[in-house]
């Protein structure tokens, strides 16, 4: 049977679904016989779930507006420069 150390080293791989069938069976067999490791696994799962709740979705309204103003300013400046470049007379190369 795998040791607690080996099982804990594989914990993320297990949670990520990265263990092959045989490795998964060995992992599950250890968990079935080792309540301490099972509790460890569950505690990592719970901490992870709490972390995913930290995702923020609130962009400050001012920032939302500023970004759009910034975008418009830059796009207009780009368009203006493009027009100016097209209007500018091309330099004629001197005949040699």
């Amino acid at each position: 049977m795998q040791s607690c150390r080996e099982v804990i080293d594989l914990l993320t791989e297990y949670l990520e679904g990265g263990l092959a069938a045989e490795g998964r069976r060995a992992f599950d067999a250890h968990m079935a016989l080792c309540p301490a490791c099972l509790e460890f696994l569950e505690s990592v799962r719970k901490t992870r779930a709490a972390v995913s709740e930290l995702r923020s979705s609130d962009l400050p309204a001012e920032m939302h507006r500023n970004l759009r103003d910034f975008l418009k300013r830059n796009l207009r400046a780009k368009a203006k420069n493009g027009r100016a470049a097209r209007r500018a007379p091309r330099k004629r190369s001197r005949p040699s």
């Binding site: 040791s3 607690c4 150390r5 080996e6 804990i8 509790e39 719970k46 779930a49 709490a50 709740e53």
Partner: peptide, 28 residues
């Protein structure tokens, strides 16, 4: 871990209070 691969911890491993705090988002 000790030489036999068993975990050694100075504190007990987990506490139901941690579960509760995580669930209630007290630890944000």
């Amino acid at each position: 871990f000790d030489d036999t691969g068993h975990r050694v911890a100075a504190l007990p491993d987990w506490h139901p209070a941690v579960d509760e705090m995580l669930l209630n988002k007290e630890l944000g």
